[in-house]
Nucleic acid binder design. Structure first.
Lengths: 193, 193, 193, 193
DNA sequence: GATGAATGAGTGTTCATTCAT
DNA sequence: CATGAATGAACACTCATTCAT
């Protein structure tokens, strides 16, 4: 019996991301992906039930990679600000090391494909922040507002700035990252009287 | 729907937005749009060169509508904070009055179709803010940072919160809008000494 | 507006029958049918929802044609034997004038496609015989047996003999037809004392 | 099902018949058959040259089984009527004991696959009847007609009635079988003056 | 201006079959 | 012997677009 060729699975993975980033979900057809991956269209269906499954499982794969990079060395006992700063820097590290992956996921979450993914699965890695938000709010370190408002100011500017396609050409140097993070912190922190 | 004869263009406009929001760019075909609009596929080609032109011109149309609502009563001489606050409230007014339009454009800007639109055209209505940013920075009211950082904290959280699909179920009451705006302002304002 | 081209519909009809008879349902693909009919595959889908619909509607069309020929000049008041004899001769007339059509339908009724057709629709034209069977049985002209036994000896030998593919090379002359019919009649008639 | 190792050929046999009866030749693909038989697609090609060979050899296998059952205890010296009666009852016994097999073969003979089988092979087991027909005709026991007319009234009603799919829901009790056989006999017997 | 008919090129997917183990 | 991996070719069907009216 022939063994699954890991190279083929990886080739399909990269070909899909490359094509989707270049020409979008609409134009990235299975046969084009197969050609890019130097594989038969039928081979794709060995690894994935259908096109939807291909796109979704790539998304989840990236998501997981990203989470594990972003949450590396996360310390629950550290002050919230330090944890968030670490998250920001890790995010930009991930992007710089995995150009394209984030771009793919940004397109994905803004397409109807995202509806196929369980909501809770999405924020999985960041759950640990939620408790930290609550205690920080109790200690009057950050504003006592809905968690969606907090995430709107933490993750959205971050994802915009981290994605070269939407960053407006701004180069994210260590300086800029730090500045941007301070702006995020200003948005959520509480100013005593 | 039953828009007829003179309103065919409008029927196509609405049918496209409805379908794209429901099933996405991938599945929204010309003939499906035609059926939804109670119109022949050929009729669409009277008003639009091709499918691309259809999608892009709808985007631009919405963009223009949104801008004109958002910038209503913009007063160059007013303080920046008041202008921005007005912008925020106008944005949410637009959304509540035009459900679906913003959702369409959010999908559009996150698809490769956006590459067909001239960058400068996008921010057109908001150019007047750029001068205001600069002078406010000079007066040490807001931080002296790249304009892309400013917009990342002004427009991105706004667009996330205004789009029901991404707002995380948070209902944007006047209270929440005001709170969110204050967070934006905190992000960009300069704290003296 | 372009009008439907009746020739195209007829061409699809004949091409389908020809191909199905030559290579069977399994091998008669939509694109082969389209090529045989000198038509684009897409054109077939203007006239038929899908392949199933194409095959079924051709079957029903033939069935109807056959019924109208077979039941021509059917006289309710005539003796049953004469009505049946007429049916037999009409059937062979239909076959000789429409070679291929019956072969198609024989293949159809012996494939799972037949399950898609309403049972009652099938025997529609022959309902008028059922009453005649009952009264003839009451008058002790034919055997008093289940109607399915009667039809097994009337229609099945007939369809076997009428179809050149199953007639075993026997040429159905007027003489043979008449002989065969007498055998049918012997099978169902009642012998007094 | 769970037939294993040594019984793989049998598993393939049964899986094929089951699938063909359920979904037809068109939809019964090699991989579906393999899955149903709990076997690799490749395994099927150990026992059969190709798909055609699989289908044909199953047909012949069933045909042979049926013949051996039908002709059991055939006695050349017995009167023709008794031999035929025995044939009829044996046929129904075969069906009741091997549901599905006859259905498969009925589909097979009415598909173009039948062309792959040698004509003479088909009627092989029944050749012994041909001589009996001739002598009975000479003795004026049955009609002196082409053998194809005889078989049309012997085997066709039989196969229709024995196949539940075409029997019209008529339950073939011993009584009904006997009645049907008498009708067959009436069809072919000769009535003296 | 407006239409439904018509289409070649393409879609996602499955096919029968072979290969390497 | 038996397997799951792998595939080119084909499948049924839909696409964006044009044509004739």
């Amino acid at each position: 019996m022939r063994l699954q060729d890991k190279n083929k699975k990886a080739a399909i993975f990269h070909a899909t991301i490359k094509l989707v980033n270049e020409i979008g979900f609409v134009a990235a057809s299975v046969s084009k992906i197969a050609k890019e991956a130097n594989v038969s269209p039928a081979t794709i269906y060995i690894y994935h039930k259908d096109k939807e499954d291909l796109l979704v499982s790539i998304f989840l794969d990236i998501q997981q990679k990203k989470n594990s990079v972003c949450m590396k060395e996360f310390d629950e006992s550290a002050p919230l600000k330090e944890s968030l700063r670490k998250l920001w820097h890790n995010s930009f590290k991930f992007v710089s090391q995995n150009k394209g992956l984030l771009e793919y996921n940004d397109q994905f979450v803004n397409s109807p494909y995202i509806d196929l993914v369980d909501d809770t699965e999405l924020m999985d890695g960041f759950q640990c922040f939620y408790a930290a938000f609550e205690s920080a709010a109790r200690e009057k370190i950050i504003k006592k507002v809905d968690v969606n408002l907090l995430t709107a100011f933490i993750f959205f500017p971050l994802s915009k700035l981290a994605n070269p396609r939407t960053s407006g050409g701004l180069k994210m140097t260590q300086n800029n990252i730090e500045t941007a993070f301070e702006m995020t912190w200003d948005a959520i922190r509480l100013y005593s009287q």
